[in-house]
Lab assay of single mutants.
Amino acid sequence: MSIQHFRVALIPFFAAFCLPVFAHPETLVKVKDAEDQLGARVGYIELDLNSGKILESFRPEERFPMMSTFKVLLCGAVLSRVDAGQEQLGRRIHYSQNDLVEYSPVTEKHLTDGMTVRELCSAAITMSDNTAANLLLTTIGGPKELTAFLHNMGDHVTRLDRWEPELNEAIPNDERDTTMPAAMATTLRKLLTGELLTLASRQQLIDWMEADKVAGPLLRSALPAGWFIADKSGAGERGSRGIIAALGPDGKPSRIVVIYTTGSQATMDERNRQIAEIGASLIKHW
């Protein structure tokens, strides 16, 4: 067993022997301040990774656009098919120029040779490549099948209805392509620590998230040296922004954090800054 596999296998073990965790309302004060600064709703939840206990939450059962955070769930569904012998990570998928959609920095470079399922998941999570996500959605049967996968996990809230990039439209009061912070946090925890996926697939999923290259201005910008984070960000229309993450000190994750916002007129930089400040408060009061 590799060191990384050992780390993920012992996530519940280490967490069980940690000192009790206590909620700190100071972080919620910052979440509410972010709402004021952005002029928009902000949803927040913080779960203990081992027990699933909610440590703090704000608007945990209000719907927010998922945006690209759905790509972690998508690759979880792909990995479940791999575990069941219905898919192979090494299978190569070929596609054409007509398949390319807006923001496809990886797939646009491989029109000639195609990409493997493993490479597509890596591109979808680490670079948020939209064509990679659409190609992977095709392998599982489309958005409705991802929703069905989530329902089978016990998540009857999260739903995907459309493809990239239309799913980022974020129309107010439109339930399409949305989740709730509580539902997303619980589902992410199941994917990373539950028995739904094999140990190898859980490790692969967290490795992809740990290698995320496009979430630097968010929670990662607030992390002290030595902290662990595996995350996936999302951005959408109407001032929408979000991030889902597993993080913790001492090089291992111990909490799940989900943050979503929508309806702001603020710039992307300002949305990023507010999420980073929430992260800084979380870490300060850990």
Rank of each mutant, 00 (worst) to 15 (best):
L188E: 01
G142T: 07
R176C: 09
R273S: 10
E166V: 12
F17S: 08
P165C: 09
R59N: 09
Q37R: 14
T27R: 03
T261Q: 07
W163V: 13
L247S: 02
E102M: 12
A200H: 15
E277C: 07
S51A: 08
V31G: 02
H94S: 11
P65W: 01
L188M: 11
P253Q: 08
D177I: 01
P165G: 06
T187R: 01
K190H: 13
W208N: 03
L47M: 12
P217N: 12
L219K: 04
D113F: 07
N98M: 11
V29S: 10
V106S: 08
P217E: 10
M1W: 01
D212H: 04
A148D: 14
P217T: 11
T69G: 02
Q97E: 15
D231K: 04
E26G: 12
G216W: 08
R41D: 07
G236E: 02
S233K: 01
F17V: 15
A34D: 02
R63G: 04
Q203R: 14
G226A: 09
L205A: 03
N134A: 04
K144R: 14
T158N: 01
L218S: 03
R7V: 09
S96G: 13
N134Q: 05
P172C: 11
D174Y: 03
A200F: 09
S233L: 02
W163P: 09
S264Y: 04
D48G: 06
S201R: 06
Q88I: 11
S57T: 11
F149P: 01
D36N: 13
V257D: 00
H285L: 09
A215Y: 04
L28E: 06
S233R: 01
C75H: 00
C121I: 05
E270T: 14
L74M: 09
T147D: 09
K232W: 00
V21H: 05
K32H: 12
F6I: 10
M67K: 01
L100C: 06
G248K: 02
R202E: 10
N98V: 11
D212G: 06
D207Q: 13
L28V: 11
P60L: 10
I140V: 09
G52C: 04
N98H: 14
L10E: 04
T186Y: 13
T147N: 11
C121S: 04
A170G: 13
L199Q: 14
V29E: 14
P25S: 10
T112V: 13
G90F: 10
E277V: 12
